[in-house]
Write a protein that binds this DNA or RNA. Structure first.
Lengths: 123, 123
DNA sequence: ACCTATTTGTCCGTATGTATG
DNA sequence: CCATACATACGGACAAATAGG
């Protein structure tokens, strides 16, 4: 697994790391039960602080995509398989939005807003 | 048009305003050519700073969803109609993700990541 | 052509919180 | 835990564009 970041992007580094791993899970490049690279390794490879990588892993754990335990490392959870099932539909949605001239960030923001609306109406 | 914000949410106020208006456009509650309420009005109604509302409007302008000119106000652009066309598909995607136990924020982040990937491969 | 009101645009500064190392 | 940097939010002042009388 290869974690990629781009220091020129406005998005925080920890979020980029989380996004990179999330994309790998959704694409099936890492599957449920497999272990992620140790945070220390990632930090050294990308020349960033260990805290930043742990921050990213913590976010993924909070989403239920991985589990973390001392000594065992970070392991992809079962929920990861569900993510992979959805990637195809997401690809189609993104492509259709692009065809209509809608910016990617705009689409992402609208999806986020829609999920927030659902929370308000269904809970 | 009614702009809603929730001070308890972690999301920045300006982003919440932009999200609220974006959702109204996508839902067809405001259509292309119609004028948004003046930033000053929104600021007074929500008891927030004028600059914060202008920040939100500027973001929507950068996305191509509205046009702004001094003296004339903020008007919904043609691209808004395209957004409205996509809302139904987004609703279906969000609902399916919820059925699979995927958190809304997780889905939104994955959509964002997918658009970033597209940028990298298509440009 | 002139004036006024409205609205966005841009600068100043300050305070607070968060991200990063 | 500590320091630096950045983002957010607020407040004020003035400029610039537009519309209407």
């Amino acid at each position: 697994m290869l974690v990629r970041i781009d220091p020129t992007r406005a998005e925080p580094v920890f979020a980029q790391i989380a996004g990179s791993v999330r994309a790998d899970i959704a694409a099936g490049r890492v599957r449920a039960g497999e272990r992620l690279p140790a945070a220390k390794e990632v930090a050294q490879a990308l020349d960033i602080n260990l805290h930043t990588v742990l921050h990213a892993y913590r976010e993924l754990r909070d989403e239920g995509l991985i589990s973390m335990r001392p000594g065992r490392g970070a392991v992809v959870a079962e929920l990861g398989a569900a993510l992979a099932e959805m990637q195809g539909e997401i690809d189609r949605l993104v492509e259709r939005a692009a065809a209509l001239g809608i910016d990617g960030d705009t689409l992402a923001s609208l999806v986020a807003e829609t999920t927030h609306d659902r929370r308000g109406t269904t809970r």
